[in-house]
């Protein structure tokens, strides 16, 4: 008996697609509305006067400045580590690779307070104390950057690993046959191909660093005009019952995050293709 034997099946009447698309729209729409509602609630709780007063406060201006500087430094440090680490894990097999891969995820899964506590203990060990003889870290500005870096870098590493995984190694192999060594193939071929992932990793690291609070509270303290970043300000203002100021600072953070995310996306989409040669 052949596969063609027997009468043909009647034409199938397909169900309409609109319930499927309606499901997608409703579920995603609910989440977007949830986020917008939170922002709208914040906006309704404050006024331009509160915002201007917050911006005029020397403590909050210091926190804005420290946040912008520390987040940018954290982003640079994170990329400096994330690019080679992501490339190594993506392109090479070596003993202990799985273990290394798992260790790199620890800062993502650990509670933020635990990261802060671990950093605090690390800098109380003999090597940590020796380092602090040279550069004061704990409860000083370097501790803010280090606390942000501990978490943000893990996200940047993961992003770069996925980015390099998605780029075929074939291009680098061709570059090798054309006379490149491994380093040249990386700088001239792999890294330019990874430019969008690089931008995503930078954006993610910056945004994570901006929102970091737990590790900073434990490792850096919450000292005004010293280790105060914007999340610390929100905490300090809330702790003295100044909710209007806390909301105003929250809105400043939201605005900063929106500006950076929008610029990064616009830049990422419109960036001219790099001329490597």
């Amino acid at each position: 008996m052949t596969a063609e034997a027997g009468p043909p099946l009647p034409p199938l009447r397909c169900r309409p697609d609109w319930p499927f698309f309606a499901g997608l729209a409703v579920l995603s729409g609910v989440y977007v509305l949830f986020i917008v509602a939170m922002l709208a609630a914040d906006l309704s709780f404050t006024s331009p006067r509160h915002l201007l007063r917050a911006l005029a406060s020397p403590e909050i201006r210091y926190a804005i400045k420290l946040s912008l500087i520390s987040c940018s430094l954290t982003t640079l440090l994170s990329l400096w580590i994330a690019v080679p680490t992501g490339y190594l894990l993506s392109r090479h097999r070596f003993p202990g690779k799985r273990l290394m891969d798992a260790i790199l995820d620890i800062p993502i899964v650990l509670p933020p307070l635990v990261i802060g506590l671990s950093l605090l203990i690390l800098f109380q060990t003999p090597p940590g104390r020796a380092l602090q003889q040279l550069v004061p870290v704990t409860y000083a500005i370097p501790s803010v950057i280090l606390a942000q870096f501990a978490v943000a870098c893990a996200f940047a590493v993961r992003t770069m690993l996925v980015t390099f995984d998605q780029i075929s190694p074939r291009c680098e192999q061709v570059a090798l046959t054309l006379g490149c060594n491994r380093s040249q193939a990386f700088w001239r071929v792999a890294l330019p191909e990874a430019r969008r992932g690089l931008l995503t990793a930078a954006t993610l690291a910056w945004a994570r660093a901006l929102g970091e609070f737990g590790p900073i509270l434990v490792f850096s303290g919450a000292t005004r005009m010293r280790t105060e970043v914007l999340p610390t300000t929100v905490f300090l203002e809330l702790s003295v019952g100044n909710i209007e100021a806390a909301v105003a600072v929250s809105l400043i953070m939201i605005a900063a995050a929106l500006i950076v995310l929008t610029l990064a996306r616009l830049f990422g989409l419109r960036a001219p293709l790099e001329r490597v040669l």
């Binding site: 074939r170 570059a175 046959t177 040669l277």
Partner: peptide
């Protein structure tokens, strides 16, 4: 090493460099 062998290689998927112009490919 591959670059020391004096060979030209065209892989099946061509593996063109997406960030480079055709001119840059020929000059690479």
């Amino acid at each position: 090493r591959p670059g020391e062998r004096g060979i030209g290689y065209v892989p099946q998927d061509r593996a063109l460099f997406q960030t480079m112009t055709v001119r840059a490919h020929l000059a690479f």
